[in-house]
Amino acid sequence: MTDLYDSRVLIVDDHLQLRRMVTKILEQQGFTCLETASCCREAAEKLKTFRPDLLLLDVMLPDGDGFAFMKELREQSNIPVLFLSAKDEDQSRLTGLGLGADDYITKPFLPEELILRLTAVLKRTYFPLSATTTGSDTLVLGNRTVNFESGLAEWNEGSIALTAKELGLLKKLSENRGKIVTFDSLCQAVWGDDYFGYENTLMVHIRRLRAKIEDDPSHPVWLLTARGLGYRLVSEKRNR
């Protein structure tokens, strides 16, 4: 399999209309190898004949439940499994994920949500390199470029080195570019789980970081403060 959309997906659900709709959603997204099953017995047969790369599995099936089916499946295969169920209780989620499912989606769901979760699982399993958001080593901020590998912020006239903490903060912000990242998440990313008490230190690091990535640090355009919440790294197209 060279392309994500060549992945073979088996949809197991007892509801015919739902099977059809999910198939349609995935086809529209570009998936071509799709197969459906309405019960555990049929799914077991399709596993042998169709050999799917991913299983989209309902929990309540006419001849058994998805959890038991998954348990049996795990004895022979490690293919990723996504539960798609109307059972929304925490216990059901925990059971499904505890059995080794890669995700648990509850009905009703938005098509985008299904696609995002399904492709994320496929990327994680079969295309691990492309799944990382930090694949890119550089971050472009207008006329400045931050190279995470060398740890330098570069521009036409020169460059300046970033400290490990500054790089850590910038990495976290760039992973969530365009979104507000809370003080707590930033502190946790840099100082680990025992991050409490570093809020003031964080402010100092952000001020120094701005001095290195902003043209006018007192009027930042890239690294903005979300009052009372955290910071946001503005996405490039927004600043154009």
Binding site: H15, L18, M21, D88, K107, P108, F109, P111
Partner: peptide
């Protein structure tokens, strides 16, 4: 939930 999935989809 299942009919609502269809409606939303």
């Amino acid at each position: 939930r299942t009919p609502l999935s269809l409606i939303m989809g």
